[in-house]
Amino acid sequence: MRIAVFGAGGYTGKLVLAELNRRDIDTVLVGRDAGRLAEAASRAGLGTVPSAAIRQAAAEDHTVLAQAFRDCSAVINCAGPFVLSGEAVVRAALAAGCHYVDISGEQHHLDRTFAEFAGPAEQAGLTVVPGTNDDGLPSDLLAHVVAERVAPVRELVIGLDVVSGGAMPSRGTLRSGLENIDSFTTGGLGYEEGRWHADVAVRCTGLTFPGGAGSTPVAKFPLPAIVTVPRHVKARRVEGVANAQLVVSLAGLTPAVLDAVPEGPPADSRRNARWIIVVEATGEDGRHARGVIHGTDMQGTTALIAVESARRLVADGAPAGVLAPSQAYSPADFLRFLGEHGAQWSIDGPGATVRG
């Protein structure tokens, strides 16, 4: 198994390299700057890597990029903003015969990936799974198993909260946020009666998050799971929300804020940060189910998820095409994997309570 990391020189790219190294998976580093890639390999604990494992290529040079991926089984794309270059990397991965995952949380990128590459990926016999990060994948998996408790589903609410613990998002994450600032100011896409559109007004105004004191005010938020969940959960309505304070802070993102932050938080700050996802489903018959998953170290969790997602595509296989996480992997099994690596989750509702 050989996995290529595009954008390996970035903050999260280095964490992905370290996770691949921890698992002893053969790795190829791809990016614009060969010197930066070599430095990233050293900082990620790979030591001195063979020159053949460092390949210089830019997203806009399709031929060179496809050649850089040529002998790899899968590509992990860590280079945002994905609305600018994500399609080019997917196209090069398919041309090289590679499965593809990325760490994007950008709704527009996910939506375009499904629209543009479903046919080409299926024809190539390859699998594309965008949005394999600390938010997108856990919320997609959790929504699937929660919805099963009350199917058919009338309404599904997916909520996010982040307790920073002093840790700031990486500069790359903020750069992607700034490029997608319209989504943060409008709340992004919602899903209702069989279609996605931006003018779905959320009905949920408060959610109870673990560790919180009662109901927390929430507001519409462009969660990646809104793009993926309706592809495998039959629901009339799916809406995404987040802690209202988080929504306000991200909607106020400016170039000056981006310039003021470091490349990414140090490891000790990351360990103090918590991500929390709540899913609440209401069935057509009025039954309710609720799921919660939470953990620490958002960037480290993203690296863990991206590597495991790519590894499973290569080792276990999945249907060809562009897939949501719950279509590519067993939701229950991947949730158990996350539980074994520090996340805590539970599902309550009709049937037995399940915890992991």
Score class of each variant (00 low, 15 high):
C78L: 04
D111N: 14
R91K: 14
H109A: 13
S104H: 07
I76W: 09
G97F: 01
A121Q: 06
A92H: 11
G86I: 06
E106F: 02
G105N: 00
G80N: 07
S85C: 12
F117R: 08
C72P: 14
L94T: 11
L94P: 02
A93C: 11
A121M: 04
D102V: 06
A93K: 05
E87C: 12
A88D: 07
L84F: 14
G105M: 12
F82P: 02
D102Y: 07
P120T: 09
E87P: 15
L110N: 05
V90R: 13
D111I: 15
C72Q: 11
D111E: 15
F117K: 09
S85P: 12
A95Y: 09
V89G: 12
P81L: 04
S85Q: 14
A88T: 09
D71Y: 03
L110K: 00
R70V: 03
A68E: 02
F114G: 01
I103P: 00
G97A: 08
H108E: 13
T113L: 09
T113S: 13
A121E: 05
D102T: 07
F114E: 01
R112G: 15
G119N: 08
G105S: 07
P120M: 02
I76C: 04
L84R: 15
S104A: 06
A96R: 00
C98Y: 10
A68G: 03
N77Q: 13
Y100P: 07
R70H: 01
R91S: 14
G80V: 00
A93L: 03
Y100W: 09
E106I: 09
I76H: 07
F69V: 00
R91A: 15
E116M: 13
A79L: 06
I103H: 08
F69L: 08
A118L: 13
V75W: 10
S85N: 15
A92Q: 12
A118F: 09
V75E: 06
I76S: 05
F82T: 11
H99T: 03
P120L: 11
A74N: 02
G119V: 10
F69Q: 01
E87S: 13
T113E: 11
A68V: 01
Q107M: 01
P120G: 12
C72I: 14
E106V: 02
G86L: 06
D102W: 04
F114H: 07
A68C: 05
L84S: 14
A79R: 00
A92V: 10
E87Y: 11
G80I: 06
H99V: 00
V101G: 04
A96K: 08
H99W: 02
C72V: 08
D71I: 08
A118N: 14
E87R: 14
V101L: 04
G80Y: 02
A68T: 01
F82A: 03
A79V: 06
A96C: 03
E116F: 14
H108Y: 12
R70W: 03
G105C: 00
L84A: 15
H108F: 11
H108L: 14
L94D: 10
G97I: 00
D71Q: 05
L94I: 13
R91Y: 08
C72F: 03
